[in-house]
Design a protein around this nucleic acid. Structure first.
Lengths: 159, 159
DNA sequence: TATTGTTATACTCTATAACTATA
DNA sequence: TATAGTTATAGAGTATAACAATA
């Protein structure tokens, strides 16, 4: 994690007021904090969000998850394998080649712990935002992200 | 970049309302868009922010930059080397072992292009935010990031 | 054939440790 | 010795291509 070194007072930071840069800085700091909070469970944020999605969507498939989390199916394989290996996830045959994923008994227990850590984490990072403004902020972020995506695909199409 | 695949309507996204998750999603989308916008200059966002910092702080050193950008000095080496190699940066002897970095003539031209791309990029991603709210949003992000950092170091200290 | 899942792989980012050079 | 810079390297995270399995 970044050490909190003081920046030389004479330095000008031209990125200081930039939304894009602060988005990235904040995201890195927040993800790093979440990783620390999850460390006692010996899972990382990626595995934790996998558990959250499966816990809320019992029987969903790997491609359902890849669409929900916007991750490449290939990159989910090692995460799912680890959680199956550790006994948190169970696979059951699904339609076609699909495999339905669900939480085992042990998985439910882990899921409850992850859910709690996520809630605490949210409360912690949300402290700086007035409570009545949080939903608005999340919605705003979602819109900025969606617009960036759309702009990008337009650019790709025009090229 | 993520393909805009539709999520199955029956899927519940438990992360949808989470600030931490949307921060990350948005940051990834925005950075990816910036990378696309910078591609014609054959530099990436990291190299571009290096140029921005040096352009605004003529004669600064590598450790000044690493503090300003919160990057490891070791990770700046290949970026600086590339920009020196391409003729955009010049090195001059500084205090002690320090090296003062500045823009060459060619670097100034590249810097102007980068600055313009950054400005356009900011305008594009800021479109979703009412103009009178942008500074407030950036300040809010900065506070969330700083708090996450502090909380993390407290946790590390308490452990 | 279209969809799903898996393997292998490569590239980027980020982190640490160990080293050199200068005051 | 403290600070600055470099090298080598290891670990995530994320991307693609090629392939296998099922309807």
């Amino acid at each position: 994690m970044d050490k909190p070194r003081d920046i030389k007072p004479s330095m000008i930071d031209p990125l200081h007021a930039m939304l894009g840069y602060q988005l990235r800085r904040t995201s890195v700091a927040v993800m790093s904090a979440l990783a620390d909070e999850l460390a006692p469970l010996e899972i990382n944020p990626g595995e934790a969000s996998l558990l959250m999605v499966i816990g809320a969507n019992h029987g969903c498939t790997q491609s359902d998850i890849s669409r929900a989390l916007r991750a490449r199916p290939a990159n989910l394989v090692p995460l799912i394998n680890k959680l199956v290996m550790s006994g948190a996830l169970e696979r059951a045959p699904g339609k076609g080649r699909a495999i339905a994923l669900s939480l085992s008994k042990a998985g439910e227990i882990l899921y409850a712990k992850v859910e709690r850590i996520f809630d605490d984490h949210e409360a912690r990072i949300g402290r700086s935002v007035p409570a009545d403004r949080r939903a608005e902020l999340v919605e705003l972020l979602r819109r900025i992200g969606d617009d960036a995506c759309i702009a990008m695909h337009c650019a790709a199409r025009d090229a």
